[in-house]
Every structure is written in C-alpha cells, then in structure tokens.
Design a protein around this nucleic acid. Structure first.
Lengths: 376, 376
DNA sequence: CTGTTAGCGCATTCAC
DNA sequence: GTGAATGCGCTAACAG
C-alpha cells in the first residue's frame, strides 16, 4: 500500500458539510434542514405542490409558476419570496402535471436494439447532449434485438415522450407504417424504408462495404466470407447489397449466418475456415474480434493466413485488443447529433427533413494483408 | 455471393401485409386504415382522448376507463363497443394524464455512470425484466462519470419516476443525503454510505479482491500494482480497502491512478512496468485488457512476465479477446434483479430492506501465473 | 405586474 | 353496472 490510502472512499467525511448553495435550493432559510428532516420515508406524506409554495410566499400559484419558468416579469420582492418558499419547502414541480398542462412531456425517447454494443452508448451520448441543450430529458429503452417486443416498446416511448428515435429498428415494415401513421414525431436511424414518410438519418453502409471490398480486391483477395448480422437488420442488408455489387469486380462473397456479438463471431470461425476464403468481413467489430480470437486459437495467423475486417470502428476507443482492426469507420457522434437535430426539427414542425446520410471511411490497420496464396 | 441473396433486407415486401390482428389494435373496423391515414403528420391534430372514445362508443368516460383498466365489471356489449372505438380511433392513453390522476408515473429510473461498460447494460437487462413484469417502464440516464451532473440527473429522474436506482453514484455524501431526505423511493447500487437511510444492494468487492490477493500470494507474488478507478467510486475504495488488509499477508500493493476504460489501462502500462511489480490488478476488466494489450506490445509476456487480473468478469460474454482474463466475477443479473426488487418493495412501502450483498468469485483463467522470479 | 379562471386527460369517488 | 362530478398539479389565457 503505497499511495492514496483511502481518501477516495468518502469524498466528504460524514457530516462534514451540507450541500453548497449553488448546488441545492433550500439554503435560504435556517429551517430548511429541519423541515426537510420531517420528510421521513415512512410517512408517504403528500408531496409539496405549487399551491403550498404560493401560500407560503403569500402569492398566487400563477406567480409561482411565472418565477419558476421565467414566463413573465415578476416583482423582484415577490420573486425572492417565492424562491425562498421553494427552497424552504423543498418544492419540485411534478413532471406529469407539467406535461399535462404544457401538452408536452419534455423528453425524447430512444430505442436501441442492444446497449452492450459500445456503438449505441456512443450515439446516445451525442443525442443526450443536444436533447439536454434543448431542455429535454432522454429516455432510453433496449429491445434486446427482439423484433417482437420492439413495436410495443416504441409505442410505450411514444406515449410518454415528445419524440422518438428508432435506432436500427428490427420490426417489420407494416409495424413501422403503423407507427408512422400516428402523427407523432419519429425519426429512423439506420433504417430506410421506401415509401415511408419518416425522416431518417443513416450510415452509408453500402459505401463503407464497397470501400472494404475495394481494399480487399486490391490486396489480391478473391474469395471472401461475410459474417452476417441479425436478419432483420437493414444495415446488414445494405452490407450484403454492397457485396452483391462487388461481384462485378471479381469478388466472390460467401455469406455465413452469424450474429452481432463477439461470441457469435467466435463461434463462426470454423465455418470461415471451412469456406476456403482468404478474407472475412464481419457484421461489426465485435463479431470481427470474436472471429480473430477463434481464428488465432485455431492456429491461423491474422492477417497472414486470413484477413479480418470489421465495421463501425468501435475498437479504437472502446475495445481493448492487441489487434488493431481494419474496419469501416463513421462518426458516431455525428450520427447521434444529426438524428437528434432532425427529431428536434420534426417536433418544432420544421419537419420535411430529407434523408441524411453519414459517410463511412476505410481504416486500414493490422488485420488485413494480401492473401497467403494470391488469386492467380 | 453464395447464399441468402438479400431476403433479409425487407422482412416484408412493401405493401405485402398489414399488421396482424394480434399485433395491433385497430383492425376491428374496416375504416381503421382510412381514419388512420387521415392523421397526416403536417397537421398537429388534437390527439384522441378518452372522451372521444366515450362519445364514439356511446358511453361515459368512466366506462371507457373501466374497460381499459379492468377496474370493474362492465356489460360485455358495452365493453365491445368501447374496444371497437378504441381500435377505430387509434386511441392511446396519455401517459402524463394517467400519471397525474393515478399519482404515479408507471416508471422507474436508473442512473448509471457509464453505458459503454458492458457491465451496466447487463445489470439493466435484469432490472428491466422485473420492472416490466410489474408493469413499469424503465428510464435510463447516464452521467458519463461526471459527479457534478449526477445529482441533477437524479433529481430529474425522481421527478418523473416512481422510484430510482442509483448505480455506483459518484456524487458526494451531502448530495446523497439531500436526495434521501426527499421521501422518494431510492435504492443505492454499489455504494454504501454509513448513516444513510437508503436501502442498498452492492457487490462484495472487498471479498472479491481479497480472493484475488490470496490467489496472487499463493502464486508467489509479493509486489503487486493496482490500477485505480474513478476517485469517487465506492467500488474502487472497497478494492483498495482489501489491498490494505492484504498487506498483513505480505502483499505489497502499489496504487497507480488510472481510470475506468481500456484506454486508461493501456496508458497505465508503462507505470506498471516501472513500478517493478510482478502482477497487476485492474479496476475492471476493460482496464485489465487495455493493460494486457500495452504490456504485450511493449514486449512483455502475460502471464509469464506479468500477471494481470481484472474485475467484473465481463470478458467472457461481452468482450472479444484472445486473453482469457483471470478476474473476480459476480452475477450481474442477480445484482440487477435484487436491486429492482428492493426498489419495488420500497415503492410498495414494504421497505426497511436491509443491505443486500452480492458475492464475488475468483475465476482463474489465463492471465495469472507464478512470477518469473519468485519472491524468496 | 398580479390574481382569478379554466382546462390539460384521466381515474375515481359518489349517486343513480 | 353506469354516468356525473371532482380533483390530480400545473400552465395559460383572461381580467384587473
């Protein structure tokens, strides 16, 4: 034990200090803590309302509302009394009541298929940033890659949020149409459905995979495997579409059903070996790294014996790996930001946003190389 | 292109089918789609309310409410008419109004410091499972390891949720006390604050690290480094406390300030080398894997030259890595389940739950071995 | 500038 | 078993 004995355990010694004025309301009057202490947890006492505040401050509820929301000018003296009362009573506005009266919830919802993939938390961060800058909360829900529950979750979200971001939705077209008919702000992220009137922001996976194929071709690869992701994934379909097109350049792509996790990639390694390819492209970086692991465990060298290419470029920041994965990269923060902005515009009825597309770039790193036995 | 040409692109060919009856309400009447189509997105038309349904069905709003909530017996004929009207109109209850009237939001909130660590999504899954089984939504917020914003986010959550789960909160004791005084259901996950009246569910990190130290000792290690996590982390403090105690067994632990991500671990590798230890314990698996990567890149062999031990055991399921990390493991789903149940009990006023502790187990895998030059 | 009056959409007493 | 009336807590006209 050399350093920093244990100071980090309790940032503040017990009872050391009370919250600073700037942190908490309720420091204006000496009786604050006393009245707060009354709020024992046993007695589910009636929450303090705006009326209580008004009474305590000797003003009407409208005035309280005004100073709290800055809706209109209020006599400084009254404002002070209100704020004191708020602090004194520990008043917090009731979100449901505000929502009802204002006609909006003050929150946006985000539905994602899988939080375990660092990809989504990253997107979420920038979504949250713009949402908060607009004074809105963010409500996250995860469908766990389950297309069945997704529609219901989306409905839930729509019921309690002013707008919803559907990330990589797996639900079928009909369900999407159903949601789009609600007249509720919804934007699609990474899913483009022809004929659907929903704004969308998506990544150019087709372009990204085309770059990957080009890279592989120039390296001399001819036979390539693709570890396919979730069946209902639009992103997956786009990647496959790119491989289709690549056939014109002499690239023969074998699609191997796989999945979206490292575990899936790990399990698919045998099939990759057996397929006789010299390179494999994975649905995403997680799958790719899983595959690399299994491939190496089975005695193959990457990239000498087998090139492995990922997608999403999550490895750099989020994943620990001695393998610097060659991958298709995108600005996840930009994706999140544009999605949130599009939704914001929609909610402001400044809609009619045309489909936005985030480009991909090829990142050549250490898992791609010419094939051991060049084609021709 | 060998298989599965592109069928997965659109699960349903455009216009192929409408939602099945079991999936969606609104199929009862032939005019459903027609009326739904009226809901153009441009005209922010008034949402259909329970009154509209009542009118359409020729009953009072109370009756509508009754059939919708199953609150009381209703004439089957009327019930049918109500349900038809609901379907026809595409009625969805307004969450805010329900919340206001019922006096509860129908949701619980979960605050986590970092969604990018697979640890939290895992916990979230089981929290969601029990919440949903209780008919409650789950609202997730991320503080991004920022102790400053955490208190505010928690307040936000409390305002719109019936109960809140504070996971690994970084805020200081005073802020925690402030929240605990609100008389609002809150349970602490992975943070124990003496004298605080909040129920808690936490992992026995102390015990876990003690096992790790024992393992290392028996292997023959005497000089060990600890890559320390966030300063405000209780879990981090607990780990350090265990190292303190381990000193009695002749283990000399050097604490190296580090962080909570793989990148942090990667960056700290030099310091580990320089410290002259034969083994290093990381704040978590992410950090450990980052360290392994850097260590190996610098020419050291793991575990021959340096043992590396993690914490949380996320590598197995979530992380791709050719390194099977020796680590301290816990049942994350159990942690989430117990936390959610404790909160549920609190909300039902069946509170007074005593602190729950989730045990840790040692998982000896491939990154720990006897030191190259055994002590003595 | 401020107080009074109406709802927001729904659940829930009450009478019938 | 059903409808009418009341109120949840708050905001937004509306008068003053």
């Amino acid at each position: 034990m050399t350093e920093n004995p244990r100071t980090s355990a309790e940032p503040d010694p017990p009872g050391d200090r009370m919250p600073k004025k700037s942190e908490l309301p309720g420091t204006a009057s000496a009786s604050v803590m006393a009245s707060a202490s009354v709020a024992k947890k046993g007695a589910r006492q009636r929450r303090v309302t705006i009326t209580d505040v008004g009474t305590a401050a000797g003003v009407s509820t409208s005035t309280v509302s005004r100073v709290l929301n800055g809706t209109a000018r209020v006599d400084p003296e009254l404002a002070r009394r209100v704020q004191d009362a708020v602090a004194e009573l520990g008043y917090r506005p009731n979100a449901a009541a505000q929502g009802l009266a204002r006609g909006e919830a003050g929150a946006i919802g985000v539905l994602v298929p899988d939080l375990s993939n660092p990809y989504f938390p990253d997107v979420l961060k920038s979504v949250s940033a713009v949402a908060r800058s607009n004074g809105r909360r963010v409500m996250v829900m995860e469908s766990d890659e389950d297309a069945t529950s997704e529609h219901e979750l989306a409905e839930d979200l729509m019921r309690c949020c002013d707008g919803v971001l559907l990330c990589s939705p797996r639900m079928n077209r009909a369900e999407l149409v159903d949601l789009s008919l609600r007249g509720h702000p919804v934007v699609l992220v990474n899913r483009i459905v022809p004929g659907l009137s929903l704004p969308s922001v998506s990544v150019d996976f087709y372009g990204g995979m085309t770059l990957v194929c080009g890279h592989l071709t120039q390296l001399g690869h001819r036979r390539v495997a693709y570890l396919s992701g979730p069946e209902a994934s639009w992103a997956n379909a786009e990647r496959i579409r790119a491989f289709d097109a690549a056939a014109a350049f002499g690239v023969d792509v074998t699609v191997i059903p796989c999945g979206h996790t490292a575990r899936h990639g790990y399990a698919a390694a045998d099939a990759v070996r057996d397929s006789g390819v010299t390179a494999v492209v994975a649905y995403n970086d997680l799958v790719a790294l899983g595959a690399v692991t299994a491939l190496e465990e089975s005695g193959l060298r990457v990239p000498e014996d087998m090139s492995v290419i990922g997608c999403d470029d999550i490895s750099l920041d989020d994943l620990p790996s001695s393998r610097r994965l060659t991958t298709a990269s995108l600005a996840r923060d930009e994706l999140g930001r544009q999605a949130a902005q599009t939704l914001e515009a929609l909610m402001a009825a400044n809609g009619d946003t045309e489909p936005r597309v985030i480009p991909m770039e090829l990142r050549v790193r250490h898992t791609s190389a010419p094939p051991a036995v060049p084609a021709h």
